[in-house]
Amino acid sequence: MTLQIDALSKRYGGLAAVDDVTLTARAGEVTAVIGPNGAGKTTLINLISGVVAADDGTVQLHGRDLSSCNATHRAMAGLTRSFQSPQLFEGMTVLQTVMVGAHNRARSGFIASMLRGPAVIREEAAIETAALQALETVGVPASIHQRPAHDLAYGLQRRVEIARTVAMDAKAILFDEPAAGLNDQEVDEIADLIQRLQRRGTIIVLVEHRMEMVMRLSQHIVVMNFGTKIAEGTPDEIQRNPAVIAAYLGTEETSDA
């Protein structure tokens, strides 16, 4: 059970934001993608999730080729992502936001929803149950389920965003800097949460700058710079890799992300 990325590329004018990147992310493993600012990590996430169309390369989830699918269909196939700042929905409560994650557990269409027959009522109950379970998994207390999601502390917002992906029962989750803006304790909590998801068999791709978190969580690390993969291996191997060290501490000017 893998998320297989082959030769993924994206050019903007003359600049290769992502250049021929290949990686394999396995179920039950955390695959981290690290690299200096401007290395192309977020673009890579955008390409894999389908938010940006790639110029070249393929994305395969569990053997199924998603390369020609848009973001919606990739998500329907089980591939989802989080964002650099939690993209919660304006004006919705915590529970409602997570219920959106469970959207595809139901099938009723526009007209059926307007008529609200017994099938719709059953589906709604199932969606709510899934959302409540997801919130429990990520550790968001029931007392705040009815509060507007935007009112919450940043760390809780991040957890609600993750709860959404849990409600989706995603097969692969791409995390784009989930620890950004969090204090040390919150970082630990998010790390625990990611480990829980990993143990359930979800494929996890983690883009992150907090090295302690990366080294602690991941079994497999891919290092990028200037859009290409410059190194790949276990945390130990990466920490000792001279090319990686040079990329981070090197004297060349790297462009801003």
Binding site: S49, V51, N70, A71, T72, A75, M76, T80, R81, F83, Q87, F89, E90, G91, M92, V100, G101, H103, N104, R164, T165, M168
Partner: peptide, 15 residues
């Protein structure tokens, strides 16, 4: 409502 708030995150949830 999700679409109104943010089409990209909504799409990434399979909507």
């Amino acid at each position: 409502r999700a679409i109104r708030s943010g089409e990209v995150p909504a799409a990434c949830l399979g909507i």
